[in-house]
């Protein structure tokens, strides 16, 4: 009986200690911008409502991007993007979950790390690695970087008549500024 009580005590302690280490960092206003450059036309769309969370102690990161929140210069382009290409009714979000390689959680200032994980877009999951600049100033983390995605990797169909207008490789830029959060 004593042994059981001891085990229960340790379990309780471990639970409490977990609740304490919930010091994850969170943002609601992350920015993701993508660009399609071709000789015919340049397309740009920006999303300023990207959700992301990091857990520095474990070196983990997750990102959730609402596809409808991308704003295009042309209203009709935004409609086509959601309706005919990315199919946001069926796949409303793109998500990323990954680990920061050799992350130094205690480091202050700037560091460049690789983040590798799984990106899910248009219902297709692909393992990717992203070179990321990580900056920590006054307890605020900033993650920023660029990556390139191939349209064909995500089963996004472009009609042949428009293939000169839409790049095969889409350039993506991101910038997240995290504040500490205690919600678990």
């Amino acid at each position: 009986m004593l042994r059981i009580k001891t085990v229960l005590f340790f379990l309780l302690v471990s639970c409490v200690s977990h609740a304490q280490e919930a010091g994850s960092f969170f943002t609601r206003q992350g920015t993701v911008t993508f660009f399609s450059y071709t000789s015919v036309e340049n397309i740009k769309a920006e999303n300023n409502q990207v959700l992301s969370i990091i857990d520095p102690s474990k070196g983990e990161i997750a990102v959730s991007i609402l596809m409808r929140a991308f704003v295009f210069e042309k209203a009709l382009m935004e409609e086509h993007f959601n309706e005919s290409y990315i199919e946001s009714d069926l796949y409303p979000k793109a998500t990323f979950q990954g680990n920061i390689q050799d992350f130094d959680a205690s480091g202050v200032g700037s560091q460049t790390k690789m983040i590798s994980g799984n990106l899910t877009l248009h219902g297709i999951t692909k393992a990717i690695s992203i070179k990321t600049n990580i900056n920590r100033v006054n307890g605020v983390y900033t993650f920023s970087g660029e990556l390139e995605l191939l349209v064909k990797d995500f089963n996004i169909r472009i009609p042949p008549i428009l293939s000169p207008n839409i790049a095969k490789t889409i350039m993506v830029k991101f910038s997240f500024e995290y504040d500490e959060t205690y919600e678990n």
Binding site: L51, A62, D89
Partner: peptide, 30 residues
Amino acid sequence: LLLGTAMSYAQDLLTKLDSIEQGQDLPTLA
């Protein structure tokens, strides 16, 4: 009890993000 603690571990970051509502005021498109 052990399983319970293990499961609370497994609640990963993405699940946390999923519980946060996004895009509340977007009318149906097209």
